[in-house]
Amino acid sequence: MKIAGSYTVPFPPERAYEMMQDPDVLARSIPGCESLEKIGENEYRMKMKMVLASLSGAFEGKVRLADQKPPSSFRMVVEGSGKIGFVKGDGLLTLTPKDGGTEVAYDGDAQVGGTMAAVGQRLIDATAKMMIKRFFENLRSVEVSSR
């Protein structure tokens, strides 16, 4: 499944980039994230609660940041699995200045399997979009509260 889109945050690319490399910020921004623990350079173990329509369950996985080119782009690789299935995602995030803020464009591939794929198919796309939107909204409020 292709996932692509963009979201504009009201702060400059340098700030946006820096925040998205910060595990504490990520932990507070990723929807459902319960913990994010560093296990290596740019690599984190994540626990999160996943909700997809009538399905919900705990997920455990890894987040890895790669190809970092501050402040303009980096790659995020996510891998997680739990009772209700598994998710793998690999996406490139590109940051460009826009009206004093930053447009974050994302473009990636996601693979969903297990029960989530079998019974949640109709909702995966919408759920993924909603989670991404919420991520940026959270990022924005974290930034506001940190001022």
Binding site: G114, T115, A117, V119
Partner: peptide, 14 residues
């Protein structure tokens, strides 16, 4: 089935 062999019509809703 999707390209990875996941049955995407996995219940009576689909």
């Amino acid at each position: 089935y999707d390209d990875n062999g996941q049955l995407v019509t996995g219940e009576l809703m689909d």
